[in-house]
């Protein structure tokens, strides 16, 4: 069953077409990479999935329902910016999540943060940029969600820590759920993907099983993506 389904989804900002008739079906239990260059429409699509943006036209269903309060209960969302109140202590932020998300596992969050050597009795603003991102990730992964949507989770992370972050995601997300990861750093995450979606200039140019794609073309996902983009440029 499709957990995320869009039909002719369009989003326009003034004269700019951010999404252009996007038709997608993302199934349950998959790790899906939403791959594309900067400004290709990844974040716009993710914002629509999370009910932060409204589409100009077309429709979107999350687990069979339109985005709203019910869909927010089942989506755990990591935006591509610091979305936490820096004045709050980490422990207060954890309590905030516990108060507002029924599926939040307090003990798991404390466990993850202890694994990452992040103190919880300090204010968020005292942490380094890397540790702030770890706190955000720990909070998101501590929810027992049906869908995890991670927008550029490794974009601001140095190459050494990227593997650590990806390992953390893979080991801690609910394996029965769907994991949608958007990134422009394709080669760093391609090994963990079940499916790939290539997006460019607001249009889906390819949606395929990652393994099938690799074996058919005998190339890495990163190289296939470059090739697809080059074909579009030549057209």
């Amino acid at each position: 069953m499709a957990i995320i389904e869009t039909e002719n989804l369009c989003k326009q900002y003034g004269k700019t077409q951010a999404l252009h008739f996007v038709n997608l079906k993302i199934n349950e239990g998959k790790i899906v990479g939403l791959l594309g260059p900067n400004g290709s429409g990844k974040t716009t699509l993710i914002k629509i999935i999370n009910n932060i943006l409204q589409p100009t036209s077309g429709s979107i269903l999350i687990d069979g329902i339109e985005p709203g309060i019910k869909s927010k209960e089942i989506i755990s969302y990591l935006p591509d910016c610091n979305f936490l109140n820096e004045e709050m202590k980490i422990s207060s932020i954890i309590n905030y999540f516990k108060d507002f998300f029924k599926n939040f596992d307090l003990n798991k969050c404390y466990y993850l943060l202890s694994q990452m050597n992040v103190r919880t009795d300090v204010k968020l603003k005292t942490l380094s940029k890397g540790n702030k991102e770890r706190v955000q990730l720990a909070l998101i992964l501590s929810r027992d969600a049906k869908i995890y949507v991670l927008d550029e989770p490794i974009a601001g992370v140095d190459p050494i820590n990227r593997d650590f972050i990806l390992k953390l995601i893979i080991e801690n997300y609910n394996p029965d759920s769907t994991l949608l990861i958007s990134t422009h750093l394709i080669q760093d995450i391609e090994s963990i993907l079940d499916e790939v979606i290539f997006i460019n200039e607001g249009s889906i140019i390819l949606h395929e099983d990652a393994e099938k794609l690799r074996s058919e073309k005998n190339m890495s996902i990163n190289d296939i993506f470059k090739e697809e983009l080059q074909c579009l440029v030549n057209l």
């Binding site: 932060i52 309060i69 019910k70 927010k72 935006p79 610091n82 979305f83 998300f101």
Partner: peptide, 15 residues
């Protein structure tokens, strides 16, 4: 809390 970056959390709590 509602209109800047913290809004990504505030606007995605199921309420």
């Amino acid at each position: 809390n509602v209109l800047c970056q913290e809004g990504y959390l505030t606007n995605t709590i199921p309420i």
